[in-house]
Amino acid sequence: MKDNLILRIIAKLLIPMIILFALYVQFHGDYSPGGGFQAGVIFSSGFILYMLIFGLDTAEAIVPSGVLRVIASLGVLVYAGTGMVSLFMGKEFLNYSALAESPTTGQHIGIIMVELGVGMTVGAIMLLIFYAFANRGRE
């Protein structure tokens, strides 16, 4: 679909906005609706749009599946790691109040970290699933 001018221009206009919106949903999730899961899904759908228009090879050159695998695993690690840090700081597993001087600051830091982990895993796994499906057609 690389030759279709209208699709290409519209996609070029839309994709930055979709990714910006995903980042907004990710990092503003504690004030407005949304969070890591929604952000990851929106990010990956924006990137899938890019893949549909510009082809799988171009997309894999930007985000190789090896990098995505590392990001997906890192997401789970960040989540569980936040829990472990609060465990070592003297409170229960995933009790973020231990992360800072005041409990609310700790909760805030913990929630942002945890949502970041969720977003990384969900976004990367969605793209990896799409890669796995799309690569089947090329054999």
Partner: peptide
Amino acid sequence: TGVPNLVTAVLASYRGFDTLGEVVVIFTAG
């Protein structure tokens, strides 16, 4: 929690362990 969005507070803090399970489920599915 000091977080205005209650849904995020419940999902990430009060039910943090459940959400960890969900993330692991998605990871395993992938």
